[in-house]
Amino acid sequence: MSRDLKKLLEEKLQQNNQRHADASQAVEFSEGREYKQIALDIIDPNPYQPRRIFPQVELEKLAASIAEIGLLEPILLRQVDQRYQIAAGERRWRAYKLLNKHAIEALVTPITDSDMAVFAIAENVDREDLSDYEIGLALRQIESVFPTKKKLAESLGLNREDMYRYFAFDELPEFMISDLNTNPRLLSRSAASDIKRLLKQQKSSPFLNACLAEAWALLLGSELDQTKFTGYVNNKLKALHENKTDCHIQNSHNLIREGKKVGNIAWTDKHMTIKISIEALNSDQENQLKTFLENMLNGEH
């Protein structure tokens, strides 16, 4: 063999093997499935489970029913190292624990991360008891196991537009998020996506934060419906912009009684406003003030 050929073959062989090793080819292998009794204490919840609270009353009802007629359907698990994760049946597993059972009948089968995520969400998207905010959080948690957002939406049977509504919660200001964390039902996904749009449209407005906070307080107090939230803020902003010059406070002076602020006097280009807390004056004093002002404005004293 000539030296050139030997060298060529040596190089080619290395290239060919490298190319083949680098190619991402899926090898088919199915481990199959197996029915087994699995000890409750080596089972963990689905890591993608969006639900944080399982109402105790419901679990007790389920436990009672299981105690009565037994487990109708085995739960679905996948094995991870020496433990198992629940793909379907977390409530049944919790009910079994309430019954102080040792093991539960399960179907054990290999399940990919993305399928685990789909199981976790799909069970909940259809049920009414998970809020849009929680679903939104769950979607964020699992999106990395899908190659694209499109795939994520497809896997869950959501249309893309609807999926982006769930993602709109991310854009909300801090104070809304912290209230949503304790009360996730404050906003639906469409209200959240309306607010997201509003934030974008009005981002240059200097009054935006104040108006949002005001509307949010009303919403928290059930005085403003979530569907009217953005309308309310928009109207507020519009009114403020029309009187913009008037709102520009030039100077102000606080009115203090016994070290506590009870009102203020503020000056703008056009007006001087005297504001006093309703509790600071009795009706006599109010009348005195009114008379005083009238007299002064009419040039009498």
Partner: peptide
């Protein structure tokens, strides 16, 4: 395909 193809089959 690996012998005569210009591409790797996986591509």
């Amino acid at each position: 395909s690996l012998h005569i193809g210009k591409k790797h089959p996986s591509e």
